[in-house]
C-alpha cells in the first residue's frame, strides 16, 4: 500500500538532526502556537508510557465496546449451533466482565 511505502521511503529522505536534549521540551514547542493554551497540557500527559489520559480513556472505551459485543456474538453463534438460548446474555456479561478486568489490569494497577 502507498501508505506503507511512504513511511519507508521517508527513511531515505534527508533526516533533520534531532534536538540535542530530548528530555527537555523543545524550543519549538515552547512557542505555544495557535492552540497554545489548548495544547499546553500535552506535555503533562506523559505518564508511564507516552500514552496519555485521553488515549487511555479511548482505549478503555474500546475494550468496553468490544468485550460485550464480541462475546455476545460468540454466544449467539454457539446458541445457533447448540440450539440453546441463554448464551447471548452470558456472553454479553462475560465480555463486559472481561473488558473491565482487562482495563483494570492494564490501566488501573498503577
Amino acid at each position: 500500500m502507498s501508505g506503507v511505502r511512504m513511511s519507508q521511503q521517508h527513511d531515505d529522505a534527508p533526516r533533520p538532526v534531532e534536538p540535542k536534549k530530548p528530555t527537555e521540551p523543545s524550543k519549538y514547542a515552547q512557542s505555544g502556537g495557535l492552540f497554545g493554551t489548548f495544547l499546553a497540557s500535552s506535555s503533562d500527559w506523559k505518564t508511564e508510557r507516552p500514552g496519555m489520559t485521553e488515549s487511555v480513556g479511548v482505549s478503555a472505551l474500546s475494550y468496553l465496546l468490544s468485550g460485550p459485543v464480541v462475546f455476545a456474538l460468540i454466544g449467539y453463534g454457539l446458541d445457533r449451533w447448540l440450539h440453546t438460548g441463554f448464551l447471548v446474555p452470558i456472553g454479553l456479561l462475560a465480555g463486559m466482565a472481561l473488558s473491565i478486568y482487562l482495563i483494570w489490569f492494564r490501566y488501573g494497577a498503577e
Binding site: G3, M6, H10, A13, P14, P16, V17, P19, K27, Y28
Partner: peptide
C-alpha cells in the same frame, strides 16, 4: 499526504533545523 510529505514537511524541518 503526498504534497505535505514531499514539499511541506521537509521545508518546515529545514527551517526548524536552520533556526536551531
Amino acid at each position: 499526504l503526498f504534497v505535505i510529505w514531499k514539499y511541506v514537511v521537509p521545508k518546515l524541518e529545514q527551517a526548524y533545523q536552520e533556526r536551531t
